[in-house]
Amino acid sequence: MSTPSVTDSVTPTPAGGGAARRGRSPWAEFAVKRALGLLGTMVVLVLLTFFIVRLIPGDPAVQVAGSDATAAQVEAARHQLGLDKPLWQQLGDYVGGLLRGDLGDSFSMRGSVRDVVLSRLWFTGTIAFVAMAVVLLLAVPLGMAVGILTRGGRRRWLDRVFTVLTGLVAAVPSYVMATLLILLFPVTLALLFPAYSELNPTASLVLPVLSLAVGPIMIMARVVRREIAVVLEQDFMRTARGWRLGTLRLYGKYAFPSLMTSTLTLSGLILTAMLGSAIVVETVFSVPGLGLGLVRAILAKDYPVIQGIVLILGIIAALLTLAIDTILGIIDPRTLGGRHA
């Protein structure tokens, strides 16, 4: 990248130590560290979810056997579910299944956990990734615009209004935002859908996406506004302004790339957080995604589905973080944690 940027202007750290000193690629060290980290995360997730689900009050065998079951029938259900085995054996069976790629079978519905997860993943993935796209498309231009308009202490009123408004909206929890959006659009304006609709799947996902996106738009816009203020004071921007370039070219080509690192880092954090918020938003809008599935599985004491969904969400979050770090590593190799080769 020949374009001058903030990252280019940072003084390189003195050489010595780390991968470079040992003559290894920083990518190799990065890959080893991350693979070990991913493995550790998975082990912790598997163990934690396995033991935590068993702390949920209530007996899954009673739930599965139904309200008309006798004690003997409940015991038969317990045997069928494998819950009469010692805990270590249940853990062994579960881990053995995972190693074979088998997440087990649902207690509460016919079918494998894999099928349950796959049928729901699309919904969660769609609302989270579309929400993220909306955040990037709106927050970056908004933050840049306010930053540019208020640079050097200009238009202080705009700065104050922006700061107060974004702070207020960002503080609204996603479930409150979801309720407010339902109140505004379907209830008051008779627009869009208050819940997921099989008849209008695309339209009915608009409000869930907005519920997830509005808060992060504000957060990211604030970060971008602060970042751009710093970038605009850099020497290369003063030089670029002297070239009398058009506004779009000036800020798009010279200022925007300098925001990439912080924007991407924040995007990773927001996207991971959105997977958590999806649990609430999916429940409010009745979107049949992983979040709603998790809530239902907890109520149904469906241990395999709870374990499966938590594990898959954990893997997705870990992989997202890895992907963001990899992209950051490509943009700025110093973020790899080692030294330049």
């Binding site: 599965v64 139904g66 509460s108 519905m109 016919r110 627009l191 869009l192 859908f193 609709s197 099989e198 008849l199 209008n200 695309t202 339209a203 996902l205 608009v206 239902r296 149904a300």
Partner: peptide
């Protein structure tokens, strides 16, 4: 397309004989 769709939802009217309803839980068997 989303906003347009919400203006005219398919209510499963006379032309369609598919009806949509809900159950409280998935079938256990």
């Amino acid at each position: 397309s989303a906003l347009t769709a919400c203006g005219a939802p398919d209510t499963g009217g006379s032309a369609s004989t598919t009806l949509y309803t809900e159950s409280t839980a998935a079938p256990t068997s």
